[in-house]
Design a binder for these strands. Sequence first.
DNA 1: GTTGAGCGTT
Length: 232
Amino acid sequence: MSHFGRSGPPDIAGTHSLLVLNISFRTTADDLMPLFDRYGKVVDIFIPRDRRKGTSRGFAFVRYKYEDEAEKAIKRVDGKSLDGRDLVVQWAKYGRNEDEWGGGGRGRDRDRDDDRGRDRRRERDYDDRDRRRSRSRTPPRRRRARSDSESPVRRRARSDSRSPVRRRSPSRSPARKRSESRSASPAPRRATRSPSPRKRSLSPRKSPPPARSVSPKRSVSPKKSPVKSDED
DNA sequence: GTTGAGCGTT
């Protein structure tokens, strides 16, 4: 039967796994069972799903008891239309149990030369499979390292020429000692215990664009003195 | 609620 992540593989002794690709996202093992079961004895069908949401990834693993049957299913089911998509059946490459693959499941007709490096795929994190789409293909996608050429990097070489007020560094303010003094940390002596180790809601930087300057162009107003010429 | 080349679970 099919186990939906409830328990591990029932029996994988001398079983052959087939990879079914191009299946609908809603296709379940139950839908593939009758399809593969009619061509041979299916030991189990497993469909990897996302642990975050639980959605199917779009491919399933069909484990057959005999290789000849599995091979037959490959030629039979492979190319069949299901849910509007053509199923692609092929021999599974990286079995979760490579030990079993050492002597069984080697009846590849077309993929006989698959010794590129399955041993390297041993360690994989869930984070990596998330890039299946991100890293799917990047043919015309190249790094934008050429931007610097057109990048309008305005280097102010005249720091002493013009007034230093023109500094465009809002990130860091020169005169902020007052804040530092007041913002003196209470006591970083948290040796054994942390007051809020799991509290991450507070933003470390709560400094939105504070309206400190009224005129980013010039700090000094040209006309500071009130009108006094009219009055005399 | 999306997606579409690929490779799997207690």
